[in-house]
Amino acid sequence: MIRAVVFDVGETLVDETEIWGSWADWLGVPRHTFSAVVGAMAVRGKGHWEAFRVFKPDFDVEVEDGRRALAGRGTRFGPEDLYPDVRPCVEALREMGVWVGIAGNQPVRAERDLLDCGLPVQMIATSAGWGVKKPEPAFFERIVAECPYQAHEIVYVGDRVVNDVVPARAAGLATALIRRGVWGFVPDAFDPERLADVRLRGLDELPRWVAERRRA
């Protein structure tokens, strides 16, 4: 039985289109060019920060993020950046009595951004706040420690097989893979080994799947 759902952040809850675009603007690169390079890195199995180093070889995210913040152009998101299916999904899960949390690879300031989105969740956590990031096993161990249920009663929802599905499954969690965002359409997201317990086209499909698991 599924008693808890924990969501990733970027491209699971938050549409990062404008976030990526603002980084392209900061680097002085056309947005479509920057997006193409990010996609190329994703297909090659490289981290997205490698795309930044194509245009700025000495790129350091902490340094650049600080510079952007000082210039009043820091990376932030708000309720308007949530995908349209997010709030209805979370509200439906809560009405079912499901414990809902959010935990993703994000800077500490994203915790405030998520709080400001006003979602009815019981946990908001970031990798920076915890001092451990995906796909490290300790990240998912922390999820289990923070959640009032056992690992097999928790489903982790994310858009990346390598970062989300594989390590969550290894930690004993159920997994849901959502196909959207850059990593939602690269080859590993097709999940050829069918590792995810469910593959979603949108979060509107999740409450029904959880309800079925709760009846099983």
Rank of each mutant, 00 (worst) to 15 (best):
T175E: 06
E11V: 03
K46Q: 15
Q122L: 01
V63Y: 03
A42C: 06
R94Q: 14
T12A: 12
V38M: 12
D191N: 02
G47C: 07
P107Y: 00
W26I: 03
P84E: 05
S22F: 03
M96G: 11
K134E: 07
A170I: 10
V157Q: 09
K46N: 14
P192Q: 00
F34P: 06
R94P: 09
F34S: 05
E16A: 11
A171F: 12
D116T: 01
A151F: 09
A174P: 02
V90I: 15
L195P: 03
A168D: 11
W23R: 12
D85G: 03
W23L: 10
E62Y: 09
E95K: 15
F7H: 07
R68N: 01
R215H: 13
V54P: 14
V210L: 08
L177P: 10
D188F: 01
R53P: 13
V54S: 14
A42K: 01
V54K: 13
D65R: 13
L114Y: 01
A145F: 02
R67F: 00
V43W: 03
V37Y: 08
R194A: 13
R68L: 06
A145M: 04
W99S: 03
A138W: 02
L82F: 04
F139H: 08
I2K: 02
G181D: 10
F52V: 09
L114Q: 04
I124Q: 05
D159Q: 14
A4Q: 06
A125T: 10
L27G: 08
L13W: 12
R208A: 15
R194T: 06
R180M: 09
W130H: 04
R87P: 06
R213L: 11
V6I: 14
E111H: 04
A138E: 15
A42L: 04
V14K: 05
R201F: 10
V54I: 15
S127V: 03
A189L: 01
D159E: 14
L82H: 05
Y156D: 08
G158T: 06
A196C: 07
L203E: 10
A196I: 04
D191K: 00
P30G: 04
E141Y: 06
D159M: 08
E91H: 08
N163Y: 13
Q106F: 06
R67A: 08
G21S: 12
W209K: 04
F34C: 09
A24L: 07
T126Q: 04
D116R: 12
G74I: 00
T175R: 07
Q150P: 02
Q106M: 08
V9H: 10
P84V: 01
P107M: 00
A69W: 00
D8W: 09
D204I: 06
T12Y: 10
V100T: 10
E141D: 14
A24R: 01
E50T: 15
F140Y: 14
R76W: 04
A92Y: 05
W130K: 01
A103N: 04
P57F: 10
R214A: 14
D159C: 08
L114R: 00
E64G: 05
E193W: 02
Y83C: 02
D85P: 02
T12G: 12
